[in-house]
Design a protein around this nucleic acid. Structure first.
Lengths: 130, 130
DNA sequence: TTTATAATTAGACTTATTCTAATTAATAAT
DNA sequence: ATTATTAATTAGAATAAGTCTAATTATAAA
């Protein structure tokens, strides 16, 4: 008897919500959006589903601030968060190989190229502040 | 009457613990180490002190995983966390200016050069895994 | 000294997440 | 088809990090 690893109706509904979102929703936001669509699952189901979808590579989990956020874009990319408003955006500019090597040499780590979180101030917050 | 902004005995004790630590302790770990030294303060005091020390530039706060960690090294540098064991290390290799510009151009963000969190697998976890 | 404000305290509260025990669903072997 | 086995879901309790509040203590300026 093999493990099932099914895309159950619950998991499918959660994946759909994430695919329809471009703002990296948190688990709580995903639950809100499910409710708007007339679906409501137990906390445990949502977290279990997010774990399953992440582990099977269907979504990407990124921890930002005090919550995990989820992204349907699974291509290699990084993220940047605004230190003023908290929004999170994608960064597709690849890390320069030279710098990655320098970091690896300095730290002894094997770099994970997809999990970099940058910080900064987004365009609209800069406009508002200055 | 001006605000005081004092380095009270509590704040001093907390700063001492952080200066004596090289492993980026969390608030909970700081409280443990205070207790080992025979000091114990209210949660509120510890968090208030960490905020004060961060705002006055005496320590650096970095959010990693589900908790904030504190670092007595305030020079410009980044951090890298092991995705296996969770340890956090310093990265002093500066971001290549060219890449920073590319990210700024792509995202419209004004990059904060000191707040980059990288992920990877540390040397000892790699040795253990392979 | 009195007065105003800052800092500390204990503990309640919030938020994100994990865990648990019971139930339901689905598959595999009979 | 029926039963055994395991997976997934559920409701809700438990945990962990951090914030908030009201009362108290400490400090400094007038």
């Amino acid at each position: 008897m093999k493990p099932k690893g099914l895309l159950t109706p619950q998991r499918k509904a959660i994946l759909d919500v994430i695919c329809a979102s471009s703002d990296h929703p948190t688990a709580a936001e995903i639950m809100d959006r499910l409710r708007e669509r007339g679906r409501q699952f137990a906390y445990g189901t949502v977290y279990n589903s997010l774990k399953y979808l992440t582990e099977t590579g269907q979504i990407q989990e990124l921890r930002v601030g005090d919550a995990c956020r989820y992204d349907a874009r699974t291509e290699h990319h990084h993220h940047i968060q605004c230190t003023v408003c908290g929004r999170v955006d994608e960064v597709f500019a690849p890390i320069p190989g030279e710098w990655a090597e320098e970091v690896a040499r300095e730290t002894g780590y094997l770099l994970d190229q997809d999990q970099i979180l940058l910080k900064g101030v987004c365009a609209s917050c800069r406009a508002r502040t200055s």
